[in-house]
């Protein structure tokens, strides 16, 4: 009898030690999602009933707090640059000749009219700090349910379906406090580079509006070339 108890105890201990904790999952996802020293050439397409738009962008990411985005071509002809420096975000429109600090309610607006908000791009806080997180799993996904625990969390309720084999969210569902599905973030495609899984095509669907979504495709990804610090300055933004 004693032996049986010992075996059951050991099996339980093994299972407990091999199961992923919330922090483990978040850490693995963060490793794939949060980039340092990366340069992307990407295309953003915005689909809506009012008409479709597209723009090509070059993105330089030093770390979470230093990001430069240059819109090099757009279907509407406009060019602009964005600099995220620490918690501040600046927009520079060459034709206007000056940069503007994006703050307050402007951060809640769609980035270049897309379904991504400036806040989606500029959020620096750890998920653990703003959400109460619970973990479930099925055969394919770790399902992280995140409920806002601070007044200023970007979303009230979010469910993230993290692929067990890639540690990337296949889909993130954004709900209202009354559990109505409002937005969907989907990683359509990814590839392995330097030992990490990098998303190459993502979608953001606005479910309150028919056929309204934004598609971001990463055409070129460079994770090796070092980006000079001078890129992440207002002087470079306004050059």
């Amino acid at each position: 009898m004693k032996k049986i108890f010992s075996v059951v105890f050991l099996i339980t201990l093994y299972l407990a030690s091999s199961a992923m904790s919330i922090d483990d999952v978040l850490e693995r996802v963060e490793k794939n999602m949060v980039r340092t020293n990366a340069t992307y050439l990407s295309t953003m397409k915005i689909f809506s009933e009012d008409g479709d738009r597209s723009m090509q962008m070059k993105m330089y990411v030093k770390d979470e707090k230093n990001v430069l985005v240059e819109v090099i071509e757009s279907s509407e002809g406009g060019k602009s640059r964005f600099l995220k420096k620490n918690d501040a975000m600046w927009l520079f429109i060459p034709s206007a000749g000056r940069s503007v600090l994006i703050k307050g309610h402007m951060l809640k607006e769609g980035f270049m009219g897309s379904n991504f908000s400036y806040e989606d791009i500029s959020e620096n806080r750890k998920l653990r700090d703003i959400y109460e997180i619970t973990l479930e799993e099925d055969s394919l996904y770790y399902i992280l349910t995140m409920k806002a625990k601070t007044d200023d969390a970007p979303y009230k309720l979010k469910k993230s379906y993290v692929m067990k084999d890639a540690f990337l969210p296949k889909k993130e569902e954004i709900y209202s406090s009354s559990n109505r599905l409002l937005k969907e973030f989907i990683i359509e495609d990814y590839k392995e580079m330097n030992g990490i899984n990098v998303p190459t095509r993502i979608l953001m669907n606005d479910l309150l509006q028919k056929e309204n979504y934004t598609e971001m495709t990463y055409d070129k990804i460079d994770l090796t070339t070092k980006i000079p610090d001078s890129y992440f300055t207002k002087a470079y933004l306004e050059r």
Binding site: K108, A148, D151, D152, Y155, K156, L182, K183, L208
Partner: peptide, 16 residues
């Protein structure tokens, strides 16, 4: 109808 807005703290939310 679904009314979507930002709460006092800035959280994206909606009400039916």
């Amino acid at each position: 109808f679904i009314l979507q807005s930002r709460t006092g703290g800035g959280t994206f939310d909606a009400i039916d």
